[in-house]
Amino acid sequence: MRLEPIAAPSLARTFTPPALALIATVVIASLLAMIAGANPFGVLGLIVKGAAGSTFALLETLNRATPLIFTGLAVAVAFRARLWNIGAEAQLYAGALVVAVLGTGLLGWPSGVLLPALAILAMIAGALVLLVPALLKVRFGVDEVVTTLLLNFIFLLFVSMLLEGPLKDPMGMGWPKSPRLIPEARLPRMVDGLRLHWGFGLALISAVLVWVVQARTTLGYEMRAVGLNREAARFAGIPVNAVLIKTALLSGGLAALAGYSEVAGLKGNLTLDLSPGFGYTGIIVAMLALLNPLAVVAAALFVAGVFVGADSMSRAVGVPTYLADIMLATALLLMVVAILLTRFRVVRE
């Protein structure tokens, strides 16, 4: 057996395999729920209900999707240029750190100035965190997978050190957390009375902007060319190293916005459990979205929905929340195969 590329995939060919992948994911999740001793239809129903069954559930899902959109975009932008940024987690914390340090009264500006300023400074911080591995890559050929991955641990320990020391809230009863932000540094709610902050709106705008950059600007064209064929890009005169650096700055900045929106929008201060792996989950989101920035939004909503729904289901029937991780892993693996099948057909020899 081998794979043969399909010249012009039909509509059915484009949509059937991903749909089958989703159905297969649901079937496998049901089987696992049965093994755990629950009624599979009940479990799935509870997950859907927990993710989108009420206004509260829906808002919870949107809130959870917000950082995933940012980290998903960060990964999608980098991977598109074949810059393997596994360090969105560190960049997220860099953005969060900026807000936690400067948003507690150090800058006494009105909200309309302070919030954009914090966003820009957070992006710069995240960009700088990814700039180091990117420079090591283009100057010395150091593998960025290793450097970005290891930087996550270094950065998390650095944040931990700060939270135990200079950043520790004196009123925090000894917990390692930073002081609360001033009200001017908090992102307002999108709709009065609904628990959804403007971080979500910023995430949607970012997705559209990233799409515009990729599809309509020379930088986006350069990034795609560098990602698809570095040698041809260099031959054509595209400054490959400069493009990789610009990609790193954009990617790091996007990931930092996840930290910004979590601290300024949701939490109000910085703790070590700010991100339950949003940086890593961003890779899943980006892959599910085929690195398309608009599809990142849909993928982030799906992933967030599974997590939030599984939490709620677990509380109701006692099936472990690990089911959510298994569902996502299954969905990712099946989706990768499904996407292969939209572009290739299997030929039996």
Binding site: Y221, E222, N229, G237
Partner: peptide, 25 residues
Amino acid sequence: PEDRHKTGTVADFDLTENAILERYM
């Protein structure tokens, strides 16, 4: 170029994207 697959073109770009490769700026 000597190798039109490796250096002359970007295989997954369409014809338009390949046609402007040297002059997109």
